[in-house]
Simulated scan of single mutants.
Amino acid sequence: MHLLAIVAHPDDADIFCGGTIAKHADRGDTVTIAHMTRGEYGGLGSETEAEIATVRESEARASGEVLGAEEVVFLEFEDGRITHSLENRLRVVDVMRRYAPDIVLTHFQDDMHPDHQATSRLVTDAYYMASLPLVETEHPPCDPDNVYFFGKPTSTFEPTCLVDISGYEDRKTEAIKQHDSQVEFLTEHGGIDAEFDNLIDSVRAEDMVYGTQVGADAAEGFLPLHELAQEYLV
């Protein structure tokens, strides 16, 4: 089984679905993490975008190794400037076809961050179009089983699929800690994104809340595009 996580920025995969990624990797599934951007806006102004992007790419590769991802890739979109367009939709279609995943993880569309919104819509559209033979891209059509959305507690996100990640809490924390450049930046932006106040404590607390709903120590929440059998995420 192949799981493809398409996320807007480095650290999104770790924060929202790191436990699920690690769990799949440990059971022998192929896991790919595709970052739309290198997160070059994630700085406080003392470095250039190129310098920030280089650091964040390195951090993302380190965190992917912690989680057990087979491949960590970057799709060359610009941070803060992802737009929903036909051209970009076809770019994501081709990425999806390149990896031909069984399931895709991505952002829930109702989200404060415009990149998360755009990524969600592009991935949803690409999922529909990836199987169409007359949609021409560099790679042949594929037909993923489903898309699972993860979201922020500040949105209307109400997950119906909770994945037990008990035993993966420390590994998820270790993956998040790889993004050392973001600690100060996310703390400074706590007033914008409330879940970034005391990031790791907040993430673990949210996972514990989801866990109580399924009788587990910790869980991550997803909303499937189609209500199908969910054995791949159990």
Rank of each mutant, 00 (worst) to 15 (best):
S46H: 15
T212H: 12
H24W: 01
A194H: 14
D79A: 08
M129I: 02
I192S: 12
E71P: 05
V123G: 04
S120M: 04
G42Y: 02
Q109Y: 15
T37L: 07
C142F: 07
E47C: 08
D193F: 12
T137P: 08
R91Q: 12
P101Q: 04
E169P: 09
A126G: 09
Q117L: 11
F222S: 04
E195M: 12
D145P: 06
M208V: 14
F185M: 11
L122D: 07
P10I: 03
G80H: 11
H139N: 10
Y210K: 07
T124N: 08
S155V: 09
I103C: 03
Y168T: 01
M1I: 08
F16W: 06
T124C: 10
Q117K: 15
L105C: 09
R204V: 12
E59R: 04
T173L: 09
V123S: 03
H116E: 03
T48A: 09
E206N: 07
I165H: 04
Q109A: 14
G151R: 06
T83E: 15
D102T: 13
T54L: 13
A175P: 05
H189P: 02
L132V: 14
D207T: 06
H2C: 08
A126S: 14
T212F: 10
V92W: 00
T137C: 13
P224Q: 05
I6P: 02
H189I: 01
P114F: 09
S58M: 14
L199K: 02
T83V: 14
E169L: 11
P224K: 07
L233P: 03
D217P: 00
F108A: 07
A216G: 10
Q213H: 14
P144M: 05
F185A: 07
A118I: 00
P153R: 10
P114N: 10
Q213M: 15
Q117G: 07
D125W: 11
L233C: 12
Y128A: 08
G18F: 02
A34T: 01
